[in-house]
């Protein structure tokens, strides 16, 4: 474990917490005659969170962490896996099933089809993998799918234009997590023998590049001290 990996995991964890905080805020303010200002903003507009992306992440973690019962790596590893599995499925549950949270979800804007991402990733994982076994193919599938799972969210952000603060932070933290993982791989490449993993690296690089555009607008909005807005 190096500092880049740890920082990457922590930003990933923070992104999940930001999302859970957002859901908690929506939940706790509903029904009050004087909602807090944050909640007022969240309830006024749609939540800006893509259910499609969240469902894809749940699928990513479910297929990647199949080894949770078979291979023990560390207590840290197991706990983090449980957190990511638990949080991704409960976020999906909240957006689909919770009476109030569901209402803040704008279904008509979030139109991306899972199928278009899942099928190519599955085919690619069947063709290009490190080992043709059930677990390894699903692991590879999860890498490919994670690389593109943010697309519905990015498209939704571009459509809604009006990005609330928490949603902006959420996407930024996810992007930071990916960028830090690349630094982690570079570090491991130079410090560990035989550490070459083209599949992980290329899909990780593709994933990070998808955030490039968002990062550009995120940082320029910080620099100019204006609200984050993506161009149409």
């Amino acid at each position: 474990m190096n500092i880049f990996r740890l920082a990457g995991d922590m930003t990933h964890l923070m992104s999940v917490l930001v999302l859970l905080l957002k859901i908690h805020t929506i939940k706790s303010c509903a029904g009050k005659s004087y909602p807090c200002s944050l909640c007022f903003i969240l309830l006024e507009s749609s939540s800006g969170i893509s259910l499609k992306t969240q469902e894809l992440y749940a699928l990513v973690f479910a297929t990647r962490y199949l080894d949770i019962f078979t291979d023990f790596i560390s207590v840290y590893n197991t706990i983090m896996k449980l957190i990511f599995l638990g949080s991704s499925f409960s976020i999906v549950w909240y957006i689909r099933r919770h009476k109030i949270v569901r209402r803040s979800y704008d279904k008509d804007q979030d139109t991306f089809r899972h199928f278009f991402l899942v099928l190519p990733c599955l085919l690619l994982a069947l063709i290009i993998n490190e080992k043709f076994t059930f677990k390894e193919v699903l692991w590879t599938f999860s890498l490919y799918l994670e690389a593109v799972a943010i697309l519905p969210q990015l498209i939704l952000l571009q459509r809604t234009r009006n990005i609330d603060n928490l949603t902006g932070q959420y996407v930024f933290l996810l992007g930071a997590y990916r960028a830090l993982y690349i630094l982690n791989w570079i570090y491991r490449y130079f410090t560990e023998p035989h550490y070459v993993h083209w599949i992980t690296w290329i899909s990780g690089l593709v994933q990070t590049l998808l955030y490039a555009d968002f990062f550009y607008y995120y940082f320029s909005s910080l620099k100019n001290n204006v609200k984050l807005k993506l161009p149409a």
Partner: peptide
């Protein structure tokens, strides 16, 4: 131990 070592990542 032939397991690819990215498997210790999340």
């Amino acid at each position: 131990k032939n397991q690819p070592s990215t498997h210790d990542e999340l």
